[in-house]
Design a protein around this nucleic acid. Structure first.
Lengths: 349, 349
DNA sequence: TAGGGTTCTTGGAACGCTCCAATGCCTGAG
DNA sequence: CTCAGGCATTGGAGCGTTCCAAGAACCCTA
């Protein structure tokens, strides 16, 4: 069977829906239906059109679909510069999960960077004005984050990775239950025989940090263990952490739960300086399971966030929101998991 | 002055070019020209149209532009899953730079994930067929990478982060001069008084690894220092590296240049096991400046890749290629920089 | 055989923009 | 005063798709 000139292999530009229609002997609309509402076609017509589509290698042009349907099938994600000094935020794992789940649902992730020296809202506004995206995934949400309220006001679908810490809750989010993570860390340590379990956290006021502190506290209380004098705070810097943890060690803590791997590293350093060995003399648990944790000696036990699951949930929540703009907000709290390494061995004796 | 009903603040849908034209008393084409070829307009007309555009808050609809101009102003970037165990590839820094530079040029980054269990070409093919992107940035290029040839065959613009290691060079790329980095490491160590400088590299055959080994070798030769018996190889795993470095230490090396921070960490571990102190007893230099490097004790001297610059170059090269598809290929080799920390102090005595 | 309800298919318009070719206007030379 | 020639502006069409409403074909019943 000789191929007509408008076959895929022909060099004449891309195959359009109209070309397929002509070749299959149906109207353009029918080809469109074959793709979008196959149920409308008689089985034999559907079969014929589908075969023609395959033969010609037809793929619909996204821009034309976007223009007509007013939906770009794109999800915006604003990446922020990684603050130097911070331990790898491991955001690439999250991004990968996000991208993959979105792909499976026929969506893609559109990356944009907030230009330096801006409030950060401009990037979002631009993409909305240009009709470039259908919605947003926010990350790095924190107290006083204006984005949620701003997006909600404009009726733009969004989902946050990270809950809202203010009392006013806006929109959907997925987050990791930090309290549950530190709680599990305490459970683990108690199981090993520890009683003097200290907490090294961030300065008061950060939602994430307070949450992690709270989990430690409630687990301690549950076991009837004192928390007074066992709680220190430091910014997320290794040297600051080293200094901050000293009083806890002086007070005889046999284990330290830290709000981050960086803080845990501060503990390592403090212990080494007093000729003590992390893990052997004092147990240490970090938070985040950054790549560093596995490489340390001793390997750092740490609470791992289920970033892949968070990514999947974000996409799911966002799609649900786009499908039903007025549905009640949905919030998902995911369980982190404790990764046990050598920094938390059983107590000798 | 009362605002006409089709003002930005009016609730009636988005502002279109036609609405602006009507209000400004010009043809749609003139509004388009005001935006795209302002030189064509008489200054006073331009001024009037621009004012109207601002008043109405008009922004062109990307999909319509894309459809008409056949250019999506989108750059595809396929993210690969971070191989577990590997030290943070620090790809987020690169991605951020990429995104930011692209933004400044009116482009955006479209993320896509290769579905698991595929050769990796499918994602690219799909985006091309859908006319979703104007070009690609490739990363993680390696020997036997099919992507360049495949994309070149279809005439799709692309740029690689990472040169092609095979003899057949295809397309543009930007890369970091690894040899120059290890060369600089040797220079630094020689300057500190070291003579017995060993190299801990990856197994032969990886372009990147061989390149880094070569820099060490040439610097050693330049200084008349022997390289025989001073070169060991290991896969990029901390425990494998620890084992591999033993012979080098046994041979009396006073300094080790490693092809990665992970390998350098293997050195740390080997030294600690023989009761030696990294930095004090044997100097160690890593490669990549992963976040971990700064957090170790002693802080790891390491070769830092200029990821931001690479990101910028990638965008620049890609845009140039899109502007001139038949121009001769351009290749950019960027200089890494040595970050000196405590693992390379001056030799005592 | 005609009527009424499905089921399947179609034509035309529209989405919002930019391309192309053509128009009108103005200036200055013949 | 006319006409070439440059400049500023316009009209119409088209990019490739999907929406809408209407048309054709079909089947069953009266």
């Amino acid at each position: 069977m000789p191929r007509s000139p408008d076959t895929a292999s022909s060099k004449a530009g891309p195959v359009t829906l109209a070309m397929v229609a002509r070749r299959a002997g149906v109207s353009p609309q029918t080809v469109s239906n074959a793709l979008n509402s196959p149920g409308l076609l008689r089985p034999e017509t559907l079969e014929r059109v589908r075969r023609t589509i395959d033969e010609m290698g037809y793929r619909p042009h996204r821009a034309a679909q976007t223009l007509r349907t007013r939906s770009s099938k794109l999800i915006g994600y604003g990446i922020r510069p990684t603050p130097p000094g911070t331990l790898a935020p491991v955001m690439d794992r999250f991004l990968h999960a996000l991208s993959q789940t979105a792909d499976e649902a026929g969506y893609r992730i559109l990356l944009f960077a907030s230009p330096p020296g801006t409030t950060g809202l401009e990037g979002y506004e631009e993409l909305i004005d240009l009709h470039s995206v259908d919605g947003f995934v926010l990350s790095g949400t924190d107290r006083g984050d204006q984005r949620q309220a701003w997006l909600a006001k404009r009726g733009v679908p969004f989902v946050g990775f990270g809950r809202m810490w203010s009392s006013r809750q806006i929109g959907d989010w997925a987050d990791v239950d930090g309290a549950s993570g530190t709680d599990a860390a305490v459970e683990h340590l108690v199981g090993l025989g520890h009683r003097k379990i200290a907490f090294l956290g961030w300065p008061r006021g950060s939602g994430v940090g307070d949450d992690r502190a709270e989990g430690w506290q409630r687990a301690m209380r549950r076991h009837g263990l004192p928390v007074r004098g066992r709680h220190a705070r430091s910014v997320d810097d290794i040297e600051a952490a080293r200094a901050a943890v000293e009083p806890l060690l002086d007070a005889g803590a046999t284990a330290v739960v830290a709000a981050s791997d960086t803080l845990a590293l501060g503990c390592y350093r403090a212990l080494r300086e007093r000729q003590a060995v992390p893990g052997r003399d004092v147990a240490v648990v970090g938070f985040d399971d950054s790549p560093t944790a596995a490489l340390l000696s001793p390997g750092l036990s740490t609470v791992a966030q289920p970033l892949e699951a968070v990514g999947r949930e974000c996409v799911r929540l966002l799609l649900a929101r786009m499908a039903a703009p007025d549905a009640p907000p949905e919030r998902v709290l995911l369980e982190p998991s404790l990764v046990v390494r050598d920094s938390t061995p059983a107590l000798a004796g």
